[in-house]
Structures are given as structure tokens and as C-alpha cells.
């Protein structure tokens, strides 16, 4: 019997820890007839460190956010580009397929066996005070993570404040920031419903966030071939879709929690003034993306086109 150690982060109640890992654990244990047992371990360090902890065999499996390691992961930003207009599940499946077909050969995940790729739900605008147009955001103090939302923030002319997500609540309560761009699920899990009382939901959101789940290749190689096949058979696209679905569920729960808490939610419809403004704002970002990955030797334009086509026609 082999123990497979998964290093995780975020609170145990988060969908990734309450649904995704337990479900996959069960799949693995069933597929290997109980020969491989999965254990989850917390508190091993910053999420960005997980890539290296798995590569060096400190743990066997983990997951992380590509945006935490700028410079190393560029192609994965394809799925983060604005105006994808799909659920996390659809985006995750497209993310996986396009990675396998176009991006895998660029080997950005060197030293790791990628077992799943997924995105969080669409990022939305969560504010302390209401806004009526995107122009209202100019000069506002907004917490920005990296990658595509940083670019959007710059185009909006916001005053960027850098901070880890768990700090957002405190900073907002104290007025250090006026708002944050983050998925709907955080209304519940970061308890933003108490402080970010005004949410603008753009159709399809502003951006997505790219995550990977990965395994130590030596661990995989040391397994009995039968078990290796079994684990891989419950990973890949199947795992990616399941993870995306769980994060979608988290967003639904977040929306429900926000509604129950009486948060003022503005649902923008396609063609509304805010939507038009956002479309205008993001012009040229595709080209900027192609430019940024020009040195990777892949057809980024074809990949992004196919990614959008898969995501939008999913199911």
C-alpha cells in the first residue's frame, strides 16, 4: 500500500479542499482498489512554493496559481484573457485540451507531471461604495493580484494596492482599499459580503485565474504500472472539469451568501453601458498576450482561438 501526500492551502472549507481533493482521493482509491491512499497536508508554506515542493519530492501532489510565479508561466495566461464568457468548468476543460495540444511542448511545467488545469470563476468588481460606470474606478484604491487583472487595473487607471487575498477583508474594513477584483465565491469564503457591499457582475466576468494540479514524476514512475495507469485515468480532463465545476459551485454559494446578506449586486447584461465600456477597455489585450509569449515557440493565436471556441461551445 502506498500513501500519496497532497499538499494543500486555503481553508479546509474551501471547495478545492472540501470537494476537489476528497473527490479525486476517492477516485484514486477506487481505481487502484485501495492500494494507493491519499492524505492531505496543510501549512507547508506559500502557495507559490508548492511547485518546487512537489518537484523536489517534499510532497507528491499539490496545486498552485500560475500567477504567483511570473516569468515562468506565460502561456497559461491564455485562459485568463478577458471576455471568455464561460463558466469555470467550461474554461477548465478548454484550458486542459489546449494545453495538451499546443502548450505542453513549451514545457513551462518542467519537472512536474501536470494532472489537471483549471480556472476559478470569472473575476468581478467588489466595491465598498457603488459605481455606475467603469470610469468611476479611476484613482480608486483597488487591491490587484498579478497577471491579466493587473493589466486591466492599469487600463482603468486605478491606484493599485498589492496584498495577499486573505488581507482583503481587513484592508477593506479599514478603508485602506476601496475595492477588489475577485471571483464571486469570495463573497462567502473571504467574507467580503460584510465589507464589499456593492458588486458589479460583468457578463462573463473580467478575467479568469489559471491553476494547475501536479504530481512528482518520480513518485509516478515508482508506482506499479497498473496503479500509474489507474491514477492517470482519473486525472487530466476529468479532474480539470471536476475542479472547475467545484469552483463554479463556490461562486454560486458566494452569490447566494451575498444575496442573503443584502449585498447590492448589479447584473450587467450584454450590450449595457458597462459591458460596452469594458469591451472598449480590453481592446488590444489579445495582441499584447501574443507578444508576451512570442519566445515560447507555439501558435498562441490559434491556441487562444481554439480555447475560446471550446469553452463557449462546452455542453
Amino acid at each position: 500500500e502506498t500513501t500519496l501526500r497532497v499538499a494543500s492551502w486555503l481553508p479546509p472549507t474551501h471547495p478545492q479542499n472540501a470537494i476537489v481533493w476528497p473527490t479525486w482521493s476517492k477516485w484514486v482509491e477506487d481505481a487502484t482498489d485501495g492500494r494507493v491512499k491519499v492524505e492531505i497536508e496543510y501549512g507547508l508554506g506559500h502557495p507559490k512554493t508548492m511547485f518546487e515542493l512537489v518537484e523536489d519530492g517534499v510532497v507528491d501532489v499539490s496545486w498552485s496559481y500560475h500567477g504567483y510565479v511570473p516569468g515562468r508561466f506565460k502561456l497559461t495566461q491564455a485562459v485568463e484573457q478577458p471576455l471568455l464568457g464561460a463558466s469555470a468548468e467550461a474554461a477548465s476543460v478548454a484550458h486542459w485540451r489546449v494545453h495538451q495540444k499546443y502548450f505542453a511542448k513549451a514545457n513551462e511545467h518542467e519537472g512536474l507531471e501536470v494532472i489537471g488545469l483549471f480556472t476559478h470563476g470569472p473575476g468581478q468588481i467588489h466595491m465598498v461604495d457603488p459605481i455606475t460606470s467603469l470610469a468611476d474606478l479611476k484613482g480608486k484604491k483597488i487591491r490587484l493580484g498579478g497577471g491579466v487583472q493587473g493589466e486591466i487595473g492599469e487600463r482603468l487607471g486605478v491606484t493599485a494596492v498589492g496584498a495577499p487575498a486573505p488581507k482583503v477583508y481587513e484592508m477593506m474594513q479599514q478603508g485602506v482599499i476601496d475595492g477588489v477584483f475577485i471571483p464571486m465565491g469570495e463573497q462567502k469564503s473571504l467574507r467580503l459580503k460584510e465589507v464589499a457591499r456593492n458588486v458589479v457582475v460583468l457578463p462573463g466576468g473580467m478575467y479568469m485565474g489559471s491553476f494547475a494540479m501536479f504530481m512528482n514524476p518520480d513518485f509516478l514512475a515508482d508506482l506499479d504500472p497498473k496503479d500509474r495507469e489507474a491514477i492517470l485515468s482519473v486525472s487530466g480532463e476529468k479532474l480539470s472539469a471536476m475542479a472547475g465545476r467545484a469552483w463554479d459551485q463556490g461562486d454560486i454559494a458566494g452569490l447566494k451568501a451575498a444575496e442573503e446578506a443584502g449585498v447590492n449586486i448589479t447584473m450587467v447584461k450584454p450590450g449595457d453601458a458597462l459591458d460596452v465600456e469594458f469591451n472598449e477597455l480590453t481592446k488590444g489585450m489579445d495582441e499584447a498576450f501574443y507578444e508576451s509569449v512570442a519566445d515560447r515557440g507555439v501558435d498562441a493565436k490559434a491556441a487562444l482561438t481554439e480555447l475560446r471556441q471550446i469553452a463557449r461551445s462546452y455542453k
Partner: peptide, 15 residues
């Protein structure tokens, strides 16, 4: 800071 971390770990109201 410690109470905020506890609140996030357990999904308890921070305020």
C-alpha cells in the same frame, strides 16, 4: 491579524 486568520480558517465572521 491572528483573529483574521482564525476567521478565514473557520469561515467565522471577522467583525
Amino acid at each position: 491579524v491572528i483573529l483574521v486568520i482564525y476567521g478565514l480558517l473557520t469561515e467565522t465572521s471577522i467583525r
